[in-house]
Amino acid sequence: MERIKMEKFSIIQYYGHGIPYLKNLESKGKLIILEGPDSSGRSTQISLLNNYLEANGHAVLNTGLRRSELISEGIVEAKERHLLRKRTMSLFYAADFADQLENKIIPALKAGYIVLADRYIYTLMARDAVRKINRTWSHNLYGFAIKPDLIFYLDVDPNELIRRAFQKTTEELLRGIFDKDNFLDYYESGEDIGFSDDLLESFISYQMKMKHEFYRLQKKYGIIKINGNQNIEQVQNELRNKIDKFLKIPFDSSTK
């Protein structure tokens, strides 16, 4: 069982001011992030990775945005009622993240888990920036976030996202555009993202802006870009390759 060894301890590193009352924490685990827009295949890739890592003997914890038991419901409700302004939304998601970070992610890392995050602070910072919130402000806000070991971004052409979305029914498409995390919705009113009557036009324009923001973030945070236009297996293999290399596990298992 040599393969499951992750003997190294490391001290958890923060991006900014950190959490002063949680200094010098030892992590035995790894934090791996997968970022990417909706319909990029993110969730599918995460669940395949989860199975793969567990099959290799690693304990895995799944996490993602808006999953704090205490806070997530409140965000959903406020969004449904179209009550959230941009700064409030930003801070609400930050609170949700903080709760998960301290109550789930940090304890799991200390215990030696691989924490797989379905999106992290980069999506939140990109959303803020697209909404014209000062980038320095967002960067400071997430100064309490810990630096991951690996960050992947599924880069998908917006037209490909549309094509994938069209494979669903029209109804699902509408829901996909309005109810999920794309924010092409009521409270944005298109002030800053050129909202128009044409849903697809809005969708593409928003996705292009997010993509752009991710390119900016990529350099600053060392995000690894993965070509998300490939099929599921190709993407998964690429992810496994990179993770294996990082964990120093020989790559010997093929995509299921």
Binding site: Y21, I71, R85, T88, L91, F92, A94, A95, F144
Partner: peptide, 16 residues
């Protein structure tokens, strides 16, 4: 509530 979450919830409340 941890101090950071406590702080951010109040900030959200204030921002709203």
């Amino acid at each position: 509530l941890t101090p950071t979450t406590f702080s951010l919830l109040h900030a959200t409340d204030f921002a709203d």
